[in-house]
Simulated scan of single mutants.
Amino acid sequence: MPELITPQGNHAISAILFDKDGTLLEFVPLWGSWAECFLEQFTRQLEVRGLEFPAPYLASLLGTIHNAEGKITGYDRNGPLAMGTMSDLYAILSWQGYLLGLSWAESMELVDICRQEADEMLEQNRPALPLPGLLHFLNDCAAQGLAMAVVTADETAAAEKHLSWLGIRSYFSAVIGTDQTERGKPFPDMALLACEQLGVQPSAAAVIGDTNGDMKMAKAAGAAVAIGITGTAHTPGNAAGDDAADPVTARYYLLPDADSVVQSYQELSFSS
């Protein structure tokens, strides 16, 4: 059985379960651009109806970090955009429309218009970028004979599409979206289903993710190790993200349930 080497210890595994957004692909280029388009349309659609949503509170709706120009530069890794399902996001925004005076039906229709605009923008631009070192790591995993799966809060069809945009779909024997299980993260359902489809025991699988929900899912499923990958993460109240570049800070503030925390895939390897 291959041995995965992490900065905090080594683990004998036969499979790896990857989160998708923020773990395989860069989160902000894809979902930051989607959220910007969605929130812009949301504001515009409210204005058409004679309503106004306070601009300073836009960031708090989905858990996004904005610069002075309003561009999304980061995200709360334990917030709605990172952890929620698409249905969760639509419900959050529909609720805001309802609070401003729309009927629930009107608010859902407004949100659907925004969804269509944001989805069309993604389809046209396809802003999917792999995390640094990902392709090399996936090749190493394949060379070790590891079974691999994706477990994501996104819906399966969208996940399949994004993996195809990246050109990495062939690495994974299973893609488990939140629509395939009764409960999503932080519950173990998706990890257990992925292990079942891979034909491995959870105790022989590593989980790699960028949110503490991923770590909790791994622990609940009985995974061999829960590995948090931080990249250039943002800690709460730290728009620059400098502190979160320190794995110790990330471990305690962003990923307290992780067994191991790395900033990039270059910190992971296999014993020869």
Rank of each mutant, 00 (worst) to 15 (best):
L110V: 05
S103R: 09
N125M: 14
M121R: 14
P202D: 10
L146A: 05
E196G: 08
L166M: 10
L166A: 04
A174E: 08
M121E: 13
K161D: 11
A128K: 04
P202E: 07
P186V: 10
A143G: 03
A191S: 11
R126Q: 15
S107K: 07
A118T: 06
S164R: 14
C114A: 13
T156S: 12
H162Y: 14
Q116R: 09
E196N: 14
P188L: 08
K185T: 09
S170V: 00
S173G: 14
G133A: 03
D189G: 12
Q197M: 06
L134Q: 01
E155W: 01
W95K: 15
E155I: 10
Q144N: 04
N139V: 05
V151W: 01
A159K: 03
S170Q: 06
T152F: 08
L102Y: 04
G145T: 01
L122M: 13
G177L: 04
R183Y: 10
C114P: 04
M190A: 11
A153M: 15
F172I: 00
M121P: 01
G177R: 03
S164G: 08
C141F: 08
F172R: 02
L122G: 00
R126F: 02
D154V: 09
L192K: 08
Y171W: 11
A204G: 08
D112L: 12
G133C: 04
L129D: 04
G133P: 04
P188T: 12
Q201W: 01
E182T: 07
V111D: 05
A142L: 09
E120G: 06
A128I: 13
E196R: 15
Q197F: 01
A128H: 03
C141G: 03
I176K: 06
Y98V: 07
A191C: 10
